[in-house]
């Protein structure tokens, strides 16, 4: 099938990949050549081909994060040729295909870089800082007992849509990787506005935003300077409007909450 497609001529590529043994080791870019890469492969499948080669040669394969490989889980990362998740907008790395590159290209592959994301190994980074921000307040209280009927609480369609759009965040960390300040504000704002917009999120509303921002700052992420790189690179299109919502949630919470 691949042979019938005029655009599917196999490619030879030069890869410059960040190799680092562990969190504390110093790393460097190592050059690899990969041959006969089908344009129909995903970027991660191309990495699999390289790792097969490395294994056959008795070398240590390159560690990189991946799971569902269909753009849902948020596990794949990779800073490809200076862009989070590569040159395409609105995609994760597993949704990036080799047809976006040309025969003979050199591709530089680096891990997400932020001090709050320590490198496990090679291209795999520890993103648990985002989990800790979520744990600091990204939840709602529910009553035990009988299961309530669906749609029991009336919510305007526009609000439900906005909350849902915020809820599509897959916590991949591309916003942090792309931000020149390594800020996690787009992630944080999606989590805060998703719950602040809905009636179910009102109980913890003020305490939530206070605690989640405190955790964000404690993890060592930078601050937002409204440059917009995060939203441009976000694979699910989280809007910058969420950061404005976060800012006003925080200002109102700090001015009026009972927490002194």
């Amino acid at each position: 099938m691949a042979g019938n497609n005029p655009n599917s001529k196999p490619m030879n590529l030069t890869l410059k990949v960040w190799r680092q043994k562990n969190t504390n080791a110093s790393g460097q870019l190592v050059t690899y050549n990969v041959k006969d890469i089908s344009p129909e492969m995903s970027f991660l499948e191309m990495m699999d081909v390289l790792n097969e080669d490395l294994l056959r040669q008795g070398q240590d394969p390159i560690a990189f994060d991946h799971d569902c490989r269909e753009g849902i889980c948020g596990m794949c990362s990779l800073y490809i040729n200076g862009r989070a998740h590569g040159p395409e907008s609105g995609t994760t790395t597993c949704q990036l295909h080799m047809r976006k590159f040309s025969d003979g290209d050199t591709i530089v592959i680096e891990p997400w870089r932020a001090n709050a994301f320590p490198i496990h190994k090679d291209l795999s980074v520890d993103r648990s800082a985002l989990d800790r921000i979520q744990q600091a307040g990204g939840y709602v209280s529910v009553n035990t007992g009988g299961v309530p009927d669906a749609n029991e609480i009336p919510i305007p369609k526009s609000i439900a849509d906005k909350a849902f759009d915020a809820a599509t965040c897959i916590q991949c960390g591309a916003c942090v990787a792309a931000c020149k300040n390594a800020s996690a504000m787009l992630f944080l704002s999606a989590k805060v506005s998703q719950l602040a917009l809905l009636p179910q999120g009102q109980v913890e509303r003020k305490t939530r935003v206070e605690n989640m921002l405190a955790q964000h700052d404690e993890e060592g992420f930078g601050s937002c300077t409204n440059i917009g790189s995060c939203a441009a690179e976000c694979p699910v299109g989280i809007s910058l409007e969420n950061i404005a919502i976060l800012n006003r949630e925080y200002i109102v919470a700090k001015a009026t909450s009972e927490n002194v």
Binding site: K16, W18, L29, Y79, N81, G82, R83, P87, V108, E110, R113, A114, N115, A116, A178, K180, N181, A182, S183, G220, F221, G222, S223, T225, N226, I227, G228, S229, A232, E233
Partner: peptide, 30 residues
């Protein structure tokens, strides 16, 4: 103070970084 914090949030820089493709020059150079 914010700039110092922001610069300290990424000690190891990217070898290749194309912020020019996703943000404006003036916003990055305040």
């Amino acid at each position: 103070a914010l700039s110092r914090r922001n610069q300290g949030a990424r000690s190891v820089k990217y070898a290749v970084n194309h912020l020019d493709q996703n943000s404006s020059w003036s916003s990055r150079n305040m």
